[in-house]
Computed example of a mutant assay.
Amino acid sequence: MLCALIMAGGKGTRFWPLSTEEKPKQFLNLIGEETMIQMTINRIKPIIPIDRIFVCTGQMYVDLVKEQLPELPERNIIIEPEGRNTAPCIALSAFIIKKYYSGATMIVLPSDHLINDEEEFRKIVLDGNEFIKNNDNAIITLGIKPSRPEVGYGYIKYGSEKSNLNSHSVIKVEAFVEKPNREKAEEYLLDGSYLWNGGMFIWSANNILEKIKKYSPDTYEALHEIEEIDERWIKYLVKAQYKETEAISIDYAVLEKSEAIYVVPSDFGWDDVGSWEALDRYREKDKNGNIYVGMTKAVDGRNNLLISSTHKVVVEGLSDIYVIENDGKILVGHKSNVANVKELKNIV
Rank of each mutant, 00 (worst) to 15 (best):
C3G: 09
A4W: 03
M7V: 05
G9E: 04
G10H: 00
G10R: 02
K11L: 15
G12E: 07
L18N: 05
K23S: 12
Q26W: 10
L28W: 01
L30P: 04
G32S: 10
E33F: 03
E34P: 00
I37C: 05
N42M: 12
N42T: 08
V55C: 01
V55F: 01
T57A: 11
T57C: 14
T57N: 07
Q59V: 08
M60V: 12
Y61I: 02
E71Y: 10
P73I: 13
E74G: 07
R75V: 12
N76T: 09
I77C: 06
I77H: 06
I78R: 03
I79E: 01
E80A: 14
P81W: 12
E82T: 12
G83I: 10
R84G: 06
S93P: 05
S93Q: 08
F95Y: 10
F95C: 09
K99V: 02
G103Y: 03
A104K: 01
V108F: 08
S111P: 07
S111A: 15
N116H: 10
E120K: 11
R122K: 14
I124K: 01
V125D: 08
N129F: 14
N129S: 14
E130V: 04
K133H: 03
D136N: 13
D136K: 15
N137Y: 14
L142Y: 05
I144W: 00
S147F: 03
R148D: 06
R148Q: 10
V151N: 00
G152F: 00
G154V: 00
G154H: 00
K162G: 04
S167R: 07
S169Y: 08
V170I: 15
K172R: 14
K172F: 02
F176K: 01
F176Y: 15
P180G: 02
P180H: 02
N181H: 07
N181P: 06
R182I: 06
R182P: 03
K184C: 04
E186K: 12
S193C: 13
Y194H: 05
G199M: 02
A205N: 12
N207T: 15
K211F: 09
S216I: 05
P217N: 10
T219K: 12
E221S: 13
E221T: 11
L237N: 09
L237T: 08
K239A: 15
Y242H: 04
T245W: 06
I250S: 08
Y252E: 14
A253D: 04
V254C: 09
L255A: 01
K257P: 05
S258Q: 08
E259H: 12
F268L: 08
W270Q: 04
D271A: 00
D280A: 13
R281A: 05
D286F: 07
N288G: 13
V293D: 13
M295N: 10
V299F: 12
D300K: 10
G301H: 06
L305D: 06
L306M: 09
I307G: 03
T310E: 13
L318R: 01
L318H: 03
G333P: 01
N337T: 15
N337D: 15
V338E: 11
N340F: 11
N346E: 12
